[in-house]
Design a protein around this nucleic acid. Structure first.
Lengths: 155, 155
DNA sequence: ATAAGTGCAAAGGATTTGCGATGGG
DNA sequence: CCCATCGCAAATCCTTTGCACTTAT
């Protein structure tokens, strides 16, 4: 159980198990991935578990440090987090129109790693992100283009 | 010549060719890649071409829009930019200790693209970043560890 | 008991915006 | 001449920090 893992890890390093930390972990277990600090904050509000934003930030950082969360950086300069357990090698496709994030599995990254290591670089972590349009935004994009053409014609 | 390309692109979309825009392009041509807004601002100051920071931000965004620059997002929530021309398929290795950025060439991303497209996602752009330690920081890291061990012994 | 963690409010850093002044086409 | 662009200062957004209070161990 992830909760027990967190407790163990926290105690190991002399950190404490607090209600806030458990509540945040729960949010990730229930609402899944790609949550930003603000999302976590608001979800806890809705759940009648008000928390301070600084605590959210500090906890996300802490949980990343002990390997429970992974810190992600998509378009927009907002950090997001996901449970780091599931599948290590999945990447993200971010829709630049609506912001939707799609997960992708992919293994063939090893080649790139080898190259980096040949250059003496020690790889700790990596991020692969595709930017583009998700299916529904492609449709909408189409619509706007058609509309625009209609307008141009009727001038 | 890149300068001419920019002029053409700007005029095409009804934007103007200004001294500031040309100066910023020049900075990228001379100082190369991975520059943040603040870097550009300071380099222009040194060059006795003072500019307003807002103009830098607006221009970087504009040049990205017309395909002259590519917007990058490394660790730390600071946007950086590079000329988008050179080789489309190079990626970055960022040293998490000193911030140095190493370029890597890699072609085998097509697989991942295919997967995304099979899921109906239209790929516009992508980012692949490795985080880790560059050669010299690995050495320093070693030193600090050895020092730490020495200290522990002498307690 | 006591050191770690919390909440609050204030500070910080990067980027964006509103607006009067400037200048390219 | 007119509208896009500029510079400046203020505003905004996300995140971090300082400090007195609270709480897990």
């Amino acid at each position: 159980m992830l909760k027990d893992f967190m407790r163990k890890k926290l105690r190991e390093q002399g950190s404490r198990v607090t209600a806030q930390r458990e509540a945040i972990l729960k949010i990730f277990e229930e609402y899944g991935d790609h949550l930003g600090a603000d999302d976590v904050y608001n979800l806890l509000l809705k759940r009648k578990k008000p928390i301070s934003k600084s605590t959210v930030y500090r906890t996300l950082e802490l949980l990343t440090g002990i390997g429970i969360l992974r810190k992600l950086e998509f378009n927009g300069g907002v950090y997001r987090y996901e449970l780091s357990e599931p599948s290590s090698n999945h990447h993200h496709a971010v829709c630049t129109r609506c912001g939707k994030i799609i997960d992708l599995k992919f293994e063939e990254v090893s080649e790139l790693f080898k190259k980096a290591e040949k250059m003496g670089f020690f790889v700790n972590n990596y991020s692969i992100i595709l930017y583009g349009l998700c299916p529904s935004c492609q449709e909408n994009e189409m619509k706007s283009i058609t509309e625009k053409m209609d307008n141009d014609e009727s001038r």
